[in-house]
Structures are given as structure tokens and as C-alpha cells.
């Protein structure tokens, strides 16, 4: 069913918790590391950290409250809420219901979690756009939020250097053709390869974490990353996916104003950029003050660009997510 309706992202807002994890604080207990080495390899100086009593739902709620305040959008008009997260407050009930209640969204709203991390934002944009274009809803609130330090605190040092906590909120709306100030959602493509599941995993984060354990013996969920395997996935699969996406979209590299990739780490991003022959000025790096925030990296970068009035009518962005699953996704956004 197509209605000729177009879906566009119209506002993006973000929330960064107040706590900070500096490189200096990370290296205190790891004599083999230096702050300079961390920044050179990861591109990260500081990450944000939640307070002990601050959870994923709080990150999403704070970001959405900012979105309503900045945009003036009436929350009563939200038809559907997506929350992209891999750090739900609890498995049951789903965290989007907590966010609906915290935001006092109407109970007529549809709400669901999307259990995706670094690939989640383009996925959710595509789903929101599909619902809008089919005529089923008009306004979708798309939140991303991950309290990833909950998994990274106990991880090995290489992982600890990457992750921070953050939440974002994006308004995806049904717009008239050519409506100003909007980013029309175009081509969306996806990929999944579960054979890579063990290379980016929190093995005890679900049912497997406690079935067969007593409560006291259950281990704290800890993030495990096989760096070489993930890098190999990025080189082989993600770069080919991006090339195919651009070809299908009939976009030359020079026709894209902003390549906004998942902000994994500087080493990986720079390798991808050089491999894809993308000029630096078209390639967004937004890592230094926030780190890798899982589901929130792409909208955080968009919020930062938007706050600086970077998007001009006629410009095009390509958003690319990739990570745990393995899972990958891309979305074209055209600004009007």
C-alpha cells in the first residue's frame, strides 16, 4: 500500500548524562596504556556516564523532553514510539512502556523496543517511514538510548576505552512534498549475518544469564568483543554494502554531503573512509567528547550538525549503521 505520503525526520535532540569518563581516569589502573594512545587510536577524549540510579528509560525520556521543548511539538500528537536499545531497564516489561509513561504520551500510542545497537537507527528510520508512508501513522517518536557502561565497566581495557552512555530522540513525521527544514527518508537497505553473533556479545545479558544459576551466582553481564573479527566484518561486508547502497541510490561519493556512519572508533572509521575514498570534509566524525554510544551515535552526530545549522536544502546524507548481530543498515536522507 502506497499513499504518496513522504516521511521525514524533522527534529533531533540528545541527552548526555553528567558523569564523565576521561582517558586519564581510564589509564590509572592500566600502566600499559596512556591517554594519548587512547585518543590516537579511538578518537575519544571523554565519554559520558549515567548516575547509579539513571537508566536507559531516563536517557530516552530526557532526550525526548528536550525534543518537545526545542521543537514545540505537541506530545499528544505522537502516534508511535520506537525505543532502540540493547540495555533495557529490564527484559520484561519492554522499556518503551516506561518511556511512554514517563513522557505522559497518550495511551493510544503504539510503543515497542527495537533490540538493535549500532545498526539500529537506520533500521528504525526505515520502519517509521514505512508506517508513515503506508498511512497507518503520522508522527513517530524514535528514541535511542543505551546505558552501555553497564556492560563495558567489567570488559577488557580495549572495550572500556570506547563506550559512553547517551540518549537521543528523533521526530519522524508525515510531510508535504518539499516541506522546508525536513530530511526526507529515501532508500533504506539492511543486512544480517548471525554467524558473527559471538564476536560482539554480552553472553549473560538475557535468559542464558540466569537459567541454571542461583541469583547470587549469576555473573554480571559483560561485553565481549573480538576486535580482529569485527574489523574483518567491517572491511569485507560493510564497505561492500555501502558501495552497493550508493550504486543503487545512484549516488556518487561527491553527491553525498554527509556520510554519517556509526561512530565505532576513529581507527575503524578512518580505514573505512580511506577504503571508500570519501573526502574528509564529507565524512562526519563525532567521537571526541561522547565516545561510542551504541544506538545513539548517528542521531547524536545529526543533532550536533543540526544545532550548527549544517543541513541546507538540496543536501543529502547517507546514514550507515553496523555492529552486533552482525547487523547493518543504511538510509538516505535528502534535506529540503
Amino acid at each position: 500500500m502506497t499513499t504518496g505520503r513522504r516521511a521525514a525526520l524533522t527534529h533531533v535532540a540528545s541527552y548526555l548524562p553528567a558523569g564523565k569518563i576521561t582517558n586519564d581516569s581510564l589509564v590509572e589502573n592500566y600502566p600499559g596504556w596512556t591517554s594519548e594512545k587512547i585518543e590516537a587510536k579511538t578518537g575519544i577524549r571523554v565519554r559520558n556516564r549515567v548516575a547509579d540510579d539513571e537508566f536507559t528509560s531516563d536517557l530516552a525520556i530526557q532526550a525526548a523532553e528536550r525534543l518537545f521543548e526545542q521543537s514545540g511539538f505537541d506530545r499528544e500528537q505522537v502516534d508511535f514510539l520506537f525505543l532502540v536499545t540493547v540495555t533495557p531497564d529490564q527484559i520484561l516489561p519492554f522499556t518503551a512502556s516506561t518511556v511512554q509513561n514517563g513522557l505522559k504520551l497518550p495511551t493510544s500510542v503504539g510503543a515497542t523496543d527495537l533490540s538493535l545497537a549500532c545498526s539500529g537507527y537506520p533500521y528504525a528510520l526505515a520502519m517509521a517511514a514505512s508506517m508513515i508512508e503506508s498511512g497507518r501513522v503520522r508522527n513517530v517518536l524514535l528514541c535511542t538510548a543505551d546505558r552501555f557502561t553497564a556492560y563495558a565497566d567489567e570488559a577488557e581495557m580495549g572495550s572500556k576505552t570506547l563506550f559512553g552512555d547517551a540518549g537521543t530522540a528523533t521526530l519522524v513525521q508525515c510531510v508535504e512534498p518539499g516541506a522546508s527544514g525536513a530530511g526526507t527518508i529515501g532508500l533504506c537497505r539492511f543486512g544480517t549475518d548471525g554467524s558473527g553473533a559471538q564476536h560482539l556479545i554480552v553472553p549473560t545479558s538475557g535468559i542464558k544469564g540466569f537459567v541454571g544459576h542461583t541469583t547470587t551466582s549469576a555473573s554480571k553481564p559483560t561485553f565481549e568483543m573480538n576486535g580482529p573479527e569485527v574489523f574483518d566484518f567491517t572491511i569485507r561486508t560493510v564497505s561492500r554494502f555501502i558501495a552497493d547502497f550508493l550504486a543503487e541510490a545512484e549516488l556518487e561519493v561527491d553527491a553525498v554531503d554527509y556520510f554519517v556512519f556509526h561512530q565505532a572508533n576513529l581507527f575503524m572509521l578512518e580505514h573505512l573512509r580511506r577504503r571508500m575514498k570519501i573526502p574528509k570534509e564529507r565524512f562526519v566524525i563525532h567521537l571526541a567528547e561522547v565516545g561510542n554510544t551504541s544506538s545513539s551515535t548517528i542521531p547524536l552526530a545529526l543533532a550536533d550538525l543540526s544545532a550548527r545549522n549544517s543541513f541546507q536544502p538540496g543536501q543529502t546524507a547517507v546514514l550507515v549503521g553496523f555492529g552486533t548481530g552482525y547487523s547493518w543498515s543504511a538510509t538516505r536522507v535528502d534535506f529540503t
Binding site: G158, G227, D232, H271
Partner: peptide
């Protein structure tokens, strides 16, 4: 170390 392995992968690819 793990970063060194990544450097080698990047070198081979580039």
C-alpha cells in the same frame, strides 16, 4: 596486542 593485530589487518587491506 589486539590493536597491533588490527594495524596488520589494515596494512594488508590498504
Amino acid at each position: 596486542d589486539s590493536l597491533g593485530v588490527l594495524e596488520f589487518q589494515a596494512l594488508a587491506d590498504e
